[in-house]
Amino acid sequence: MGKDSDQTRSQSGISRRNFIGTLGAGALGAAVAGPGTATTQEAQSAADGHLVVALRVNGRQVRAAIEPRHTLLEVLRDQLELTGTKPGCARGECGACSVLMDGVPRYSCMTLAAEADGHEITTVEGVMQGEELGHVQQAFVEHDAFQCGYCTPGQVMAAEGLLRRSPNPSIEEIQEGMSGNLCRCGAYAHIFKAVSRAAELKRGGEV
């Protein structure tokens, strides 16, 4: 991210970088190929027991050589350097590692990277609107929907998935839709308000 973009401000006066440090810098690692170069739909076996998977991550085609035991979380963070997705419980309980696969939220710690082969993955880096915060992120800032912020990328992705499926959710739907994400700081009341606000923003309401 260049100096100019560091100084880019969103309308709320919060820059991409100081929102949460770890939300920034979505630069992909060496595994990134140019658009359209990875057409493989099946994991290919490499000679050394590795598999080659082709994913579409935040709109970019990516090929990665993985071990069968690697989770999607490990590949996103360690190979693609998309560290916005957080490791938490590593047992499918806390939701910090939530990403969208084909638009649907799931836990990347409970997903083998091999299972994501041929699928479309969206991480928190992928919901930015250019250098501006995405609607859900914007709403989280407006409603102070975090304290330490560690669970926030997962919360944002759960909310993003919920709102794609249900653009105008009731409070009960929001509570249910966000129930797979724990917040140890207990910011739940603000999170629910933020998701409601994000729905407004996505529907084209006043920013």
Partner: peptide, 9 residues
């Protein structure tokens, strides 16, 4: 059963 993410999977 479980959570939304786990039910999706």
């Amino acid at each position: 059963a479980a959570s939304p993410q786990l039910r999706n999977q």
